[in-house]
């Protein structure tokens, strides 16, 4: 599904990703853990094509296709989704409207017609219910006045609505209470299929009790420094990152 080969990227002339290689096959869930500032969010932005992140080497393939020249919205249309570590507020734009505009933006790029208004509402209701989000919340402006946990839940809702092929979740578990963590994990697990892959960035092994990863990576100083099975996360819980210090 996604192959990242020897990726180098810098922000404002400072190299953050220093030769990162990662291969996520169809249907798998990979977790990345790593110290603060190791470049995890940077990786997620580079995958999603954010402006200002200069790729100085390497490439990213989605289903075998090099996506480096694609705009963020084209990557979205190709099935890439990023749940943000810090979801962004858009004042005055109601969640439902935002969601509909997003779905239609993607459909348009794929050469499909607009979603039927009724189908959209039904879909929205269903996904909302699964994630325990009220109608009232959907009438509010995107992320405006949402609590930290609500924002994260809202990211998962958007993912569920857009049904991506590949989803990157950047610390979606941070700031969630125990119940919300389960709801969010359920939301992710419902979407798991042999055609969809996930890259889950987290600091806490607890999330991985709910979302069982196939592979766990340790990232430090802009590189994947160790790869293993779910047991690696448990190990890290005990040892910390001391041995990976750059």
């Amino acid at each position: 599904m996604v192959q990242i080969k020897n990726l180098h990227a810098s922000i404002a002339g400072k190299e953050i990703l220093k030769g990162l290689t990662l291969d996520i096959p169809d249907g798998q869930v990979h977790a990345i853990m790593g110290p603060n500032g190791s470049g995890k969010s940077t990786l997620s932005y580079v995958i999603a094509g954010r402006e200002g992140y200069e790729v100085t080497g390497g490439e990213i393939l989605l289903d075998g296709q090099n996506i480096m020249a694609m705009a963020p919205e084209e990557r979205a249309a190709a099935g890439l989704f990023l749940a943000f570590q810090y979801p962004v507020e858009i004042p005055g734009v109601a969640m439902t409207m935002f969601m509909k505009t997003a779905i239609n933006g993607i459909r348009k790029q794929r050469g499909e017609g607009e979603i039927d208004a009724l189908d959209f509402l039904k879909l929205m209701k269903k996904k909302q219910a699964e994630l325990g989000m009220s109608d009232e919340m959907m009438k509010r402006a995107v992320n405006v006045g949402f609590s930290g946990g609500e924002k994260k839940r809202n990211e998962v809702l958007q993912m569920a609505m857009l049904e991506p092929r590949m989803a990157v979740l950047d610390e979606t578990d941070s700031g969630l209470d125990i119940d919300a963590l389960k709801v969010v994990a359920d939301g992710v697990n419902k979407l798991r299929s042999d055609k969809r892959s996930f890259l889950v960035i987290t600091h806490y092994q607890r999330l991985l009790d709910y979302i069982k990863p196939d592979v766990v990576h340790v990232m430090a100083a802009g590189k994947i420094v160790k790869t293993g099975g779910p047991e690696l996360a448990l190990e890290l819980e005990k040892t910390g990152y001391a041995e990976y210090a750059a």
Binding site: Y45, A48, R50, E51, G52, A71, P72, E73, R75, A76, A77, F81, L82, F84, P87, V88, E89, I90, P91, G92, V93, F98, T101, A102, I103, G105, I106, Q109, A141, Q158, L162
Partner: peptide, 25 residues
């Protein structure tokens, strides 16, 4: 930039994102 990128990540072109944000404003 974060608002623009957020919208684009969800599938909106840059101009559609500006239009959406300004209309919200």
């Amino acid at each position: 930039d974060d608002q623009l990128f957020y919208c684009q990540q969800r599938g909106l072109s840059e101009e559609a994102a500006v239009a959406l944000i300004v209309n919200g404003f």
